[in-house]
Design a protein around this nucleic acid. Structure first.
Lengths: 189, 189
DNA sequence: ATAATTTGCCTAAAGACCTTAGGCAAAGTA
DNA sequence: TACTTTGCCTAAGGTCTTTAGGCAAATTAT
């Protein structure tokens, strides 16, 4: 019987696509097996468990997203960099909702440390260099930016802004303006 | 055989407690049945489905949280109100992680409209009255506050701030300072 | 080229969960 | 006390996860 040519890489890639189509938490070993026209048990040679599969998607997405972010901030500074980074996150979430969701999958500390998480923090930090945020406050600012991006995207995708009047594009740009202003006049501690 | 005295109310209450103990997405009809020492099928007279159960928890949590929020903002204005509201959310998330998670469960528009969601938006809006945010910008500000609260709590609970230096309490208070300052000098559109 | 080994996918099976259908006994009503 | 309703039960079919053991295809060695 011909082989299907499975591999951890291919499985995770396909699982990421599946996540975008049906939602991250609907990603199931069975569905993935079906997609490869293979029996479920066959996946277990390549992936330790269902959780391991999810972890794989998360790491993949984190990495892909970090690559895009790095591209976006390269050669930009100040508000241009801020906007570019923010839009990368938001666009990624819209384009690849499943992968974006995977991005928030809780990883154990080990795995998290080895993930692209650091790169993300690093990039946000880089943006602050275009502003006058004093060094000891950097982490606070990084966390604030992370919160706003993550929070806004979460609410927007979750339909939290659905039935209110002004469209979300405008709010988004106002939010970025506000963040820019805030970083520009960072309150002296 | 003596009856267990199930009811939709009791089931949802217990499910909310279960959620806090094992996590919202580990809330399962089976686990709940076990807790009542009852067969799983018995739940289906009181609850339409597993999803219906989750919806129930979500509505319950949304309501409980809105009550706490209302208490907190009552008699306060300006920064005091802002801080109080923000802390209600954060404290609730820490005290009742499962219920807080339920709060973000995606409801269908019908159900969402009938939920306490409006009350939440209303309270955030009320806080803006202590600041000079022009009326047409209110929605933008409400969304920004929601994003920051939701985003910060999500990252903090998800361990996103775990292995960085300054403690999260300080960041939190700096974030609230920043929001206060931002609302106080809301940029003219 | 053939033999030996490794690897990949399969079948089988057991456990957990969800959900529906139909039954019997307890609670509530006539 | 007889009748009706309601609550929890058993039974059963379906999905998903995971482990164990087998056979055949691919790879490597002879």
């Amino acid at each position: 019987m011909a082989r299907a040519g499975l591999s951890r890489e291919r499985l995770i890639r396909a699982a990421a696509e599946l996540a975008d189509e049906v939602g991250f938490d609907q990603v199931t070993a069975s569905a993935l097996a079906r997609r490869f026209d293979v029996k479920v048990a066959s996946l277990y040679s390549h992936v330790k468990s269902s959780g391991d599969l999810r972890t794989g998607i998360a790491l993949f997405a984190l990495d892909e997203l970090a690559d895009r972010a790095a591209d976006a901030v390269a050669g930009r500074a100040g508000k241009a960099a801020l906007t570019a980074l923010a839009n990368v996150y938001r666009d990624y979430a819209r384009e690849h909702p499943g992968r974006y969701a995977a991005t928030q999958f809780r990883l154990d500390p080990q795995t998290a440390a080895a993930s692209a998480g650091r790169r993300h923090a690093q990039m946000t930090r880089a943006i602050l260099r275009g502003y006058d945020v004093p060094e000891p406050d950097e982490t606070h600012a990084v966390r604030l930016l992370g919160s706003v991006f993550h929070g806004y995207i979460g609410l927007e995708m979750g339909g939290g802004f659905s039935h209110s009047a002004p469209d979300t594009e405008e709010t988004w740009s106002r939010v970025l303006d506000a963040l820019d202003a805030l970083l520009a006049n960072w309150p002296k501690s």
